[in-house]
Write a protein that binds this DNA or RNA. Sequence first.
DNA 1: GATCCTTTCAACCGTTGGGTTGAAAACAAG
DNA 2: CTTGTTTTCAACCCAACGGTTGAAAGGATC
Lengths: 129, 129
Amino acid sequence: MDSLSRIFAALADPTRRDMIARLSEGDATVGQLAEPYRMTLQAVYKHLRVLEDAGLVSRPRGPQPRSVRLEVHAFDLMDTWIELHRDRAEQRYRRLDAVIAEMRRDEHGQDHKNGHRGRHDAAGHPDDA
Amino acid sequence: MDSLSRIFAALADPTRRDMIARLSEGDATVGQLAEPYRMTLQAVYKHLRVLEDAGLVSRPRGPQPRSVRLEVHAFDLMDTWIELHRDRAEQRYRRLDAVIAEMRRDEHGQDHKNGHRGRHDAAGHPDDA
DNA sequence: GATCCTTTCAACCGTTGGGTTGAAAACAAG
DNA sequence: CTTGTTTTCAACCCAACGGTTGAAAGGATC
């Protein structure tokens, strides 16, 4: 499974999102993390495994601290993906608005040169992708 | 299921993410959308249903266009959630850095007033949540 | 060593998810 | 009305998921 799928899938579960939310306020031991949930400790470990595999969380394997820590940089992948497509769509909207404005201009002052290409297929795939 | 879970779950599938990616470059009919995938048309409709239920996509039910459109504002929920927790974690890091710096100052110039509160519980849950 | 807590492994159960097939509606056009 | 396409509905398969139980390792501490 690819990274993005793992990340999104990990965050699709409310319990796991809640864990992330609480970890964003500070590291916690597994016991502390598990406390509010009415489920087996093993279940909590399973959730942690999913978050860890997604890179959203790290657990210092060493002897001492035995705590869970949020890994902020894993959020960047998501962010990048989201912003990329959101921005593309928004740019497309702006471009579409421009086309519509042009069509309006054309309608009012009808046939004011007719020199520009006849691409009035609004909302179609722009070919400059 | 809550909105965030639906959105994240919808984006956890590569096919669905690819659909979003392609829709970010322009609306498409279901047939056009389905073309690159080696799966039944019914399967594509199922994917679209998931995206639609998550609010990521809309399909003008009316007679005319019968096309699929990306709904950008659905991304905002995700964005808000992500940024909220990412920022909290990053602020926590900054605060932690400050604490560490202060501890260092204390170690070098030992006992230089001792007037500030003794909160040296580094990385513990800060109580100003 | 023995004890206690933390962590992991394995099997199992019910539910959900992606996908298929097949058939039935909806809808446009002939 | 009939044909052809688009969309939906229903059943089924198999794999994955969230959760449980039970047991086995690991690691500190007495």
